[in-house]
Amino acid sequence: MFKELDPILHSQLRLAVMSLLISVKEAEFTFLKEKTNATAGNLSVQINKLKDAGYIEVIKQFSNNYPQTICKVSPAGVNAFEIYVKALQSYMHPNGNGQ
């Protein structure tokens, strides 16, 4: 039986952002934009969707008079990511138990 894939994570850009954030403590918007090659507008929309789902925390602040957006994955986001990866494994190994 295939597990349902979380629709919030099963989107290329949102998954890319989550995969980047899962490996670091926190990252600035510019880092995510550089690594995903996404446009600022699209990235901003997808970050807001992840934030609304409670998967990431977004901190807006000023550094040297420039606005700075810092993103970090939340415990709920880590949990959702783990469930998503396990579900993917069940697709990749349909005869196994997803381990």
Binding site: L5, H10, S11, Q12, L13, L15, A16, S19, L20, I22, S23, V24, F31, K35, T36, N37, A38, N42, V85, L88, Y91, M92
Partner: peptide, 25 residues
């Protein structure tokens, strides 16, 4: 990056490539 649906294998590849990009970051 497009928003179309993609396969589980593409998901795994995407996760791996993004994690790789955070090395030496």
């Amino acid at each position: 990056m497009e928003q179309e649906s993609f396969s589980p294998q593409q998901s795994i590849d995407l996760i791996q490539s993004m994690i790789q990009k955070t090395k030496n970051a």
